[in-house]
Simulated scan of single mutants.
Amino acid sequence: MSDEMHHFSMGIWLLGLAFAVAVSGSVIGLACTRHGAAATHPAARLRWLFMGALSIGGVGIWLMHFIAMLGFAVPGSPIRYSLTWTIISALMSVTAVFVGLLIVGTEFRWSRLLAAGFLVGIAVNIMHYTGMRALRFQGEINYNMYFVALSLVIAVVAGTAALWFTMVMESTVMRLIAGVIMGVAVVGMHYTGMAAVEVVHDTSAPAPVGLEVFAFLFPVFVIGLLAMAVPIVAVLTVPDREIARMDSAADDLAFEAREFATRD
């Protein structure tokens, strides 16, 4: 057995793609979170928060992780992935984010914000290190705990900041900035977590068994983009529905006024 450095290939474009996916999922997810906070009906609020958790946890965190892992390589060993651990990591990520968004509540409170930010940050870390459990190659992985701790701090601080921007700021531009902050948190945490990786390559170990990353990532990427279509359409159309509801209410008032005037 020997200690070997892993390395990332495919250049800066892969980092750019991972960042774009993280920001897109975060922006849409935080917009859903804002609508969830404004919803008056509990069922509607839960739908918004679920879409938010799916966008942030499923796309912004989970899908970003496996896109970024396209550039991961261990010289001399093929890379495979466990489907079971891949699915578990997705479920854990979405669930943890959903609980975090529930904790935020409908009104701004520091105690709720800090608890939710901590949980969302933990969700980012859980997804990353659970996703790493899915990794299969000839050898094993050890972690530098300093970088592990740093990755946790990055995710918690930036996740809390993103939720704060979302709940407090009324400006659309500031909410977009919140999505960028969350995207930076996810990508920054990922690569900090990867800096913690110490690969022990065992050339005598049997060849890894599992899926090649391209074999499952392409359909997952397509499914992820299709899943994003639902919250995107919801976010884009909700103002129209609100306007239509206001117009309908105005028509009802006008009708009642005419009826009242006729009776007089």
Rank of each mutant, 00 (worst) to 15 (best):
M1G: 06
D3E: 14
M5C: 05
F8T: 06
M10A: 08
G11W: 15
G11N: 04
G16D: 12
L17K: 09
A18Y: 10
F19Y: 15
S26P: 12
S26R: 04
V27R: 07
V27H: 07
I28Q: 01
P42V: 01
R45F: 10
M51W: 14
M51R: 09
M51E: 09
L54Q: 06
G58E: 02
G58M: 07
M64Y: 11
F66N: 03
A68H: 06
A68C: 03
L70R: 11
P75G: 02
P75H: 08
L83T: 09
I88L: 03
I88K: 00
T95K: 03
V97R: 09
F98P: 12
L101A: 04
V104A: 03
G105F: 10
T106L: 14
R112K: 11
L114S: 03
L114K: 05
G121V: 01
G121I: 01
I126E: 13
H128I: 12
R136G: 00
G139Q: 02
G139F: 09
E140G: 01
Y143P: 03
L150C: 05
S151L: 00
S151D: 02
S151M: 00
V156E: 11
V156R: 08
V156P: 04
V156L: 05
V157I: 12
G159K: 06
W164I: 02
M174E: 13
I177H: 08
I177Q: 06
I181C: 02
M182C: 05
V184Y: 11
G188H: 01
G188R: 10
M189Y: 10
H190I: 03
Y191Q: 01
Y191R: 02
M194G: 00
A196C: 06
V199I: 14
H201D: 06
A207W: 15
G210C: 05
F216I: 10
F216Q: 07
L217I: 11
P219Y: 14
V220C: 04
F221V: 11
I223R: 05
L225R: 04
L226C: 02
I232M: 15
V233D: 03
T237S: 01
V238K: 11
E242T: 07
R245Q: 14
S248T: 10
A249G: 01
A250N: 07
A250D: 10
L253W: 13
F255H: 14
A257C: 05
R258G: 05
R258T: 15
E259L: 12
E259K: 10
F260Q: 11
R263N: 09
R263K: 15
